[in-house]
């Protein structure tokens, strides 16, 4: 199931409007300078609500830029970006976006409970209410008992769990995750993948997930977007129709192996472009 984005724009004729849409989005860093970088060129991407989409591609192909545009952390040079029919700025202001970075970026001076409750606190939710919600999420990500511990006393995986709970606290419609497990060891990573897939399958949240691992992308996603650098663009999008709920055993099927080798080939082509 491969769409070539050059002749069939994905998701055309979908039943409802996509939750996230990029239309001919380009991003040029330092446009007026000599070192102008074309980080995104004419990106078209449409993501339906409740889908898990992975972005994969070599470093510098604009994956982070794509997420940062969507979160209104940067403004694209041209093109139209929408979340739920609104520009990113409006979506951010109404707290429809959650963002998990590679670095957990917790506040060292706050206990885990207050870290997870931070976005609700910034929103002006009462202490009792936000701490109740934070406790629920801490439990959801498996950090029970660590509410009153400082981040410095947790392992990398646990800190990242807290960051995920924090991103979920405002009940966002879209979760953006930029290589969230990139710094974790393989065992922890597998466990976190299963927890994430569980959260996705039970909440129906929409996820855009950046990774360097094609296996991780196939294991988690409904669709995998393959990108290529210089200029950053989408080269292929393929669907992953493995059954849900997914488990680590999903990796043992022939369909999984096929999708991984397909994705690897696409990726290698992307790297080829880079060398040429």
């Amino acid at each position: 199931m491969i769409h070539d984005v050059r002749d069939t724009p994905p998701n055309i004729g979908g039943a409802s409007d996509p939750l996230v849409s990029f239309d001919r989005v380009s991003m040029i860093y330092g446009a007026e300078t000599e070192q102008a970088v074309h980080a995104l060129k004419d990106v078209d991407l449409h993501v339906d609500e409740g889908t898990f989409v992975s972005l994969i591609g070599p470093s510098g192909c604009g994956k982070s830029t794509l997420l940062r545009v969507l979160a209104d952390l940067i403004v694209p040079s041209s093109g139209l970006v929408q979340v739920g029919g609104h520009p990113p700025e409006a979506a951010r202001q109404s707290r429809e976006i959650g963002f998990v970075f590679q670095d957990p970026a917790l506040l060292e001076w706050r206990k885990i409970l207050q870290n997870v409750a931070l976005p609700l606190e910034l929103q002006g939710i009462s202490r009792a209410q936000r701490e109740k919600e934070a406790r629920r999420l801490i439990s959801l990500v498996g950090l029970d008992g660590f509410e009153n511990v400082r981040p410095s006393q947790l392992s990398g995986g646990m800190r990242q769990r807290a960051a995920i709970a924090r991103a979920l606290s405002t009940s966002p419609r879209v979760m953006l995750m930029d290589e969230p497990f990139g710094a974790l060891d393989q065992i922890t990573r597998d466990r976190m993948n299963m927890e994430l897939v569980g959260i996705f399958e039970t909440t129906g949240i929409t996820v855009l997930f950046v990774t360097h691992s094609i296996r991780e992308a196939v294991l988690l996603s409904d669709r995998v977007v393959v990108m290529s650098p210089r200029p950053g663009r989408i080269v292929r999008i393929f669907d992953v129709d493995l059954p849900r709920p997914r488990t680590l055993a999903s990796r043992d099927s022939d369909a999984f192996a096929e999708l991984v080798s397909l994705g690897t080939k696409e990726l290698e082509e992307g790297y080829g472009d880079q060398i040429r």
Binding site: L73, R92, Q93, R95, F101, A105
Partner: peptide, 14 residues
């Protein structure tokens, strides 16, 4: 300050 934490505050509309 940490730039990523600043991004967290920005995304949270602080």
């Amino acid at each position: 300050y940490d730039r990523v934490i600043m991004d967290v505050f920005h995304v949270s509309a602080a």
